[in-house]
């Protein structure tokens, strides 16, 4: 069964057997979609971004060495795709105050079509929306059962201890925003 591990499949893709990317897609599409959806709450955009990740994996397949875990390499790509999406659409990649965000949510129906109405999201998902994207990102990555913190640190390009401290602070912030929303 060794020939069917993620790393083995990606190495086959690298060697020119592009067909094997189909198996990797089936295996990881949900996880990637969940990651993007939790980042932007927009199913349509998230599907596009999943597609972009695989396009980029094909384009940069030569950079895959097979030394580290495939999921870490994949999420590094996903992270870049997400960052480029923010940059391209000139969406600010920094934290907003709760009151400011409220205003944006009411105002942005034209520009961000497809965003699910605020009341359909759970309170926690709304709270997530108020966090800075990099905090949302680390929380999403820490929740993936398949990824250890050593791999998350590789994705984020920081030390393992640093990744854990960041995750802790992001969780604390999420808690604060969540309580603020709950009081309303």
């Amino acid at each position: 069964m060794h020939s069917l591990t993620d790393n083995a499949l990606m190495l086959k893709v690298k060697a020119g057997d592009l067909d094997k990317l189909g198996l990797l897609y089936e295996r990881h599409k949900k996880r990637l979609f969940g990651f993007f959806y939790n980042m932007n709450s927009n199913a349509m955009i998230s599907e596009d971004l999943v597609q972009n990740v695989f396009v980029r994996m094909l384009k940069y397949k030569h950079t895959f060495t097979g030394d580290g875990a495939f999921t870490a390499w994949m999420f590094k790509t996903a992270r870049n795709v997400n960052y480029d999406y923010y940059k391209k659409n000139k969406i600010a990649f920094h934290q907003k105050e709760v009151s400011e965000m409220e205003y944006k949510l009411q105002d942005s129906t034209d520009t961000e079509k497809g965003i699910i109405a605020k009341d359909k999201l759970s309170l926690l998902q709304q709270a997530m929306g108020y966090l800075a994207p990099e905090k949302r990102e680390i929380l999403m990555l820490s929740k993936l059962k398949e990824m250890k913190f050593s791999e998350i640190a590789e994705v984020l390009g920081c030390s393992e201890g640093n990744a854990k401290v960041k995750a802790h602070r992001a969780l604390k912030d999420l808690r604060t925003v969540f309580l603020q929303l709950e009081k309303r």
């Binding site: 959806y37 939790n38 199913a43 599907e47 759970s122 926690l124 929740k143 969540f178």
Partner: peptide, 13 residues
């Protein structure tokens, strides 16, 4: 809060 994160609903692709 950590536990609540599991309740986040993600639609089907």
């Amino acid at each position: 809060t950590w536990g609540k994160m599991d309740e986040a609903v993600v639609p089907e692709t």
